[in-house]
Design a protein around this nucleic acid. Structure first.
Lengths: 224, 224
DNA sequence: CGGTGTGAAGCCTTTCACAGCA
DNA sequence: TGCTGTGAAAGGCTTCACACCG
C-alpha cells in the first residue's frame, strides 16, 4: 500500500466518525472526499487498496468501512506510548484527550528534571531519566515520543530504542538517527510556521497576471 | 520552487545553525545532507533553486547560506501569531521557546472558556472568543493557529480569516475549509500515531524473504 | 582531485477516462 | 442510471550520471 494512501486513512476515519454520529448509513466517494478535503477519485483509489468495499450505485457502508480501516491501522488493539520530556509539550501530549479514543494509552513518562520526577500527569507518574530503560520496558510501550529539547533528543531516542520501542514520534527540532527497523516520524511546529512564512513572503508580490481570478492556495498539509 | 524543497529549507537551516555554533566556516552537500537526514544530491538540487550558492571544490559558506535561506523564508522580519484555544496544547505553543528565535511572536490569545479569559500566558492576556476579530486585527497577526477541539475548529478558522490572517496552522483533528488565497497546514498528533501504528501492525508479519538483511524503515517524516 | 550544478532517467502519486456492476 | 474499481496518462519528486569549475 502506497505511503501517501496510508497517511490519508486517519483522515477518512475522522470523516466516517462524523457520519456515524449523524447516523448516516452509507456514503459516496464524492461526499467522503469533500469531508476529508481530497478528490473523489483519490478516495476510491486509496480504498481500493483495502479490497472491494463499496457497492456500485450506492457507495460505501459507513460502519463496515470504519471497521475495515480501523483493522488496517491496527486500532482494534491498544497501543502503549512512552513520552520522554514532560515540558509544556510533553504534558500537553500526556493530557491530550484525543488519544485514548483511538487506542493510544500513555503508560510511561520520563524527565531529566528532578523537580518534575514524582509528579503525576494524566494518571502516570514521572520517572527520572536514569530509569528510562527500566520503566519503559516494564510499561511494554511500543511507541516512544520524544518531547525534549533538541540537545537531548538523540539520547532520548537511543534510550527508547534500547528499551524496546519500535516506533518513535519526534517533536524536538532535531534530525534523529535510528537503527533500521525502527519507524520514525517527525513533527515540528517551528518548521510548519516557517513553511507558512515562506509562502506568505511571496504573497502580494509579483501579481504576474491580473486575469488569474482565484488561485489555489493549499501548500500541502503537513502530516495527517 | 517545488513544495517538497520548501519543506526541507527549515531542516537545512537547523543543521547550519549547529555548524555555525561550532564555528565551521564551510560545509559540503554531503555533510549537510547527513546532518539534515537527506541525500546529498537532494541538498544540491534544493539549494540550486535559490541560485548558485556553493563553491566547487570546497562547498557552501555556512554564514552566507544561512542568510540566503533565512531571507528566502522571510525570517528577516517578525511574524505575528494569533492562537485560538488555550488548552494544554495552545498553552504549550504560546510558551514554546523555539519560536521567538525564529522570528515568530505570539501577539494574541483567544479562548471561549470564561475561566481562561484574563489569564496571562507567555506575557499575553487571553481574550474572550467574542473579541477575536477585534483583538486579532489589533494585534496585526498574519498567521493564525487553531488549537481548539475539532468541533470549534472551523468556526475559529473562519473568524481568524475574517480578522485578517492569511495563513492558518491547524492542530485540531478536523479538515478545515478556507477561502482561496489563505494558506493552510495541518498538524495532528493522533494521525501521526496512527500512521506509526499502521506500520507497526505490519511488522513481524510476513517475513516474505529471509535474505533481505537491513530493510529501510523511515516512513516519511511528517512535516518539517 | 573535490565538490557543485543540472539534464535525464526512474519512481511515486495524482488525475483522467471509462468499463462494469447494482 | 449512479457510482465504484482500475488501467493508463500526466505530473511531480528523487536519484543518477556527468559536465564543469576552483
Amino acid at each position: 500500500m502506497p505511503e501517501a494512501s496510508v497517511a490519508r486513512l486517519p483522515r477518512y476515519l475522522r470523516a466516517l466518525e462524523e457520519l456515524q454520529v449523524e447516523l448516516v448509513p452509507t456514503v459516496s466517494s464524492e461526499t467522503l472526499a469533500e469531508l476529508a478535503g481530497v478528490k473523489a477519485t483519490q478516495v476510491r483509489k486509496d480504498l481500493s487498496h483495502l479490497g472491494t468495499l463499496g457497492t456500485r450505485g450506492s457507495g460505501y457502508d459507513v460502519g463496515s468501512l470504519m471497521a475495515r480501516i480501523e483493522r488496517e491501522i491496527g486500532l482494534n488493539r491498544d497501543w502503549l506510548v512512552a513520552i520522554v520530556g514532560v515540558g509544556n509539550l510533553g504534558r500537553a501530549l500526556a493530557l491530550y484527550s484525543g488519544l485514548p479514543g483511538k487506542g493510544f494509552r500513555v503508560t510511561a513518562l520520563v524527565d531529566s528534571d528532578p523537580a518534575k520526577v514524582g509528579q503525576v500527569v494524566g494518571g502516570v507518574e514521572v520517572s527520572p531519566l536514569s530509569d528510562l530503560g527500566k520503566v519503559v520496558a516494564a510499561s511494554r510501550a511500543s511507541i516512544g515520543v520524544v518531547a525534549t529539547p533538541a540537545s537531548s533528543a538523540q539520547n532520548a531516542a537511543d534510550l527508547l530504542v534500547a528499551a524496546g520501542v519500535s516506533a518513535i514520534l519526534n517533536f524536538a527540532p532535531a534530525s534523529l538517527v535510528v537503527p533500521p527497523g525502527i519507524d520514525l516520524r517527525h513533527v515540528d511546529v517551528s518548521t510548519e510556521l516557517q513553511i507558512l512564512a515562506f509562502y506568505q513572503s511571496r504573497k502580494h508580490v509579483c501579481p504576474t497576471s491580473v486575469e488569474g481570478g482565484m488561485e489555489k492556495s493549499r501548500h500541502g498539509a503537513g502530516p495527517s
